[in-house]
Design a protein around this nucleic acid. Structure first.
Lengths: 200, 200
DNA sequence: GTCTATAACGAGATAGAC
DNA sequence: GTCTATCTCGTTATAGAC
């Protein structure tokens, strides 16, 4: 659906990012090491330092790539002729896709480790959430103008509830090893926040 | 408000738990060490091993104490003569209290690190969420029976949205260093899920 | 119960050959 | 670009004295 996957073969730098991304999403930035990445790629540890001098550099590159990919998906959804409700469903599908392989959202995971992160990574994490909320706010405003949505309050608050609700639902669903739990919760959250029941 | 704080002076075991609890809530289970705890208490590292042989033992004790404290607060809220809406507000206040000092919910933090945790800790984390959802479900059912709440679907789904929504809102609000963001989101989430607007 | 001393290992990172 | 070898430090944990 969304371009969240990488090609099976790629240059070393990309393969490092792919492996590290999965490790951060499953174990956290403080839960993986250069040794883990090197072993999985079948290369030596110091080779990693050629591509990413420090672990902080690798972390920055991970967020940057992840945020860019997510932002591109948001643009793609916004450009569709769909109405607001379909766009919100597509937004939720991005999260559903991330949850595969028991992964957590990269930035949700890093938000948990926030106080331990290098400053550049911290700034990129908050920017990710801000960008998502801004995009949602625009979709919600458009939907309300069209009469497709019935918000009970300001769209920026609704946007924050959706982002936080999806991140939290992922967190809990993953610890239960139950993706269906996430999908059900996400659907109901969207319905409640956008007043789907009162429109039915 | 809720009995979430420990006395200023206590025996060594309790003081270890207090410091370790705060470190896990702020930095994660993989983000602190015995050296951190020992330094803060002004004792030697091996002294910690007398009280908690392994870090996994310490982690288990942390969850057990945290969950027991939380469960006691839930019983206290349930026993009040308040209506469902007031009980839900009191439930949210438990989370607001946890967020002080930039802390994350202990079990929300551990859920992020879930795949890296020892098995006993993993089981305790999922049990914490299950207990919270069960409690919420009962409050929501009672509120609906009284006509104080208007849920748009099954109470167990609403309970999951509330737990996940609060955990996620904490996660995002903490990375923005903005507790007000959490309180606003929590209030709106509760209102949307329990149909407060359609009752007003 | 708490200490000093130390073991045993893994972490991030560097030097320098190829 | 990738390697071997190595450094330095931090980690959990143990032994044994007090």
């Amino acid at each position: 659906m969304a371009p969240i996957d990488a090609p099976p073969t790629a240059d070393t730098r990309t393969r490092i990012l792919d492996v590290a991304e999965r490790l951060v999403q499953t174990r956290g930035f403080n839960g993986f090491s250069y040794a883990d990445v090197a072993a999985e790629l079948g290369i030596a540890k110091p080779s990693l330092h050629y591509h990413f001098a420090t672990k902080a550099d690798l972390g920055e590159a991970l967020i940057r790539r992840y945020a860019a990919r997510f932002a591109a998906a948001l643009v793609s959804i916004a450009d569709r002729p769909d109405d607001a409700r379909n766009k919100l469903d597509a937004y939720v599908a991005l999260y559903t896709d991330v949850l595969r392989d028991q992964r957590m959202c990269l930035c949700g995971m890093l938000a948990a480790e926030y106080p331990t992160l290098p400053a550049p990574m911290r700034a990129a994490v908050t920017a990710f959430f801000d960008d998502n909320e801004t995009w949602l706010e625009q979709v919600l405003d458009a939907g309300r103008a069209q009469g497709a949505l019935r918000l009970t309050g300001p769209s920026d608050e609704a946007a924050r509830i959706i982002v936080g609700g999806l991140e939290g639902a992922m967190l809990v669903a993953r610890s239960h090893g139950d993706p269906v739990r996430f999908e059900t919760a996400a659907g109901r959250l969207l319905a409640d926040v956008t007043g789907a029941a009162s429109l039915a």
